[in-house]
Design a protein around this nucleic acid. Sequence first.
DNA 1: CGGGATCCGTCTTGATACTG
DNA 2: CAGTATCAAGACGGATCCCG
Lengths: 125, 125
Amino acid sequence: MPEPKRSLCPVACTLDLIGDRWTLLVIRDMMFFGKQRFEEFLESPEGISTNILANRLKLLEELGLAEKQPYSNHARRMNYHLTETGKSLRPVLKVITAWGLKHIANTQIPQSHLLDTSTSKATEP
Amino acid sequence: MPEPKRSLCPVACTLDLIGDRWTLLVIRDMMFFGKQRFEEFLESPEGISTNILANRLKLLEELGLAEKQPYSNHARRMNYHLTETGKSLRPVLKVITAWGLKHIANTQIPQSHLLDTSTSKATEP
DNA sequence: CGGGATCCGTCTTGATACTG
DNA sequence: CAGTATCAAGACGGATCCCG
């Protein structure tokens, strides 16, 4: 008669999907820096390793947050991009960015970060 | 001459602090459910184990996100509560909650969850 | 050469038992 | 009740290999 005890909490369930050390960083790279290729993700300053990156990209595909496409028909070049569901995480990234900027010393938004704090109307259609 | 390569990204740095499987859940318990005691955190449906909980509470103290006080001068009762900095994470929790509710099936806000989706002016002063 | 898969050593996490 | 000790399991980092 006791309830199943599995958490239905939206916070817990969301963290089950993206609440690890790397997933949100990969999403950040796609969303704010326009990165699309395996090698580009590797270049981020946090230094993700290849096996972890491959794993997270696969996971993001399985979750329906990202998609992979061959870049052209000959080269072995893959193109990763966010799905609409993946893009819907933009407010999450934005609020985390804002919190970090305000509460952690020495954090800053690099160059072409697409977070527009001014209008809060981001690049979605 | 190459840059230090340590990440200054506010997303990465924030995830360094609270981007693990449990920290945000403890904060959620304090912020939305008013939990204050060790045992109360243990009762959450996700089932955190005692050593992890002790570790996270200590970490939250060290980060200045939570504070511990003896409940009374005799009993061995500790009282954990968020600092102002800790409370400033409310928008993060809120946006994660909203995302989970919208994109993950079967998630729901329990009973006394203090997330007011109506006004978006939460319980802060 | 770009995009991974695999193996292995290490560090972290977590479940459980135990203690004041 | 509020933790600590112990130990197993898993995540991670790095190198290497592999395949088109």
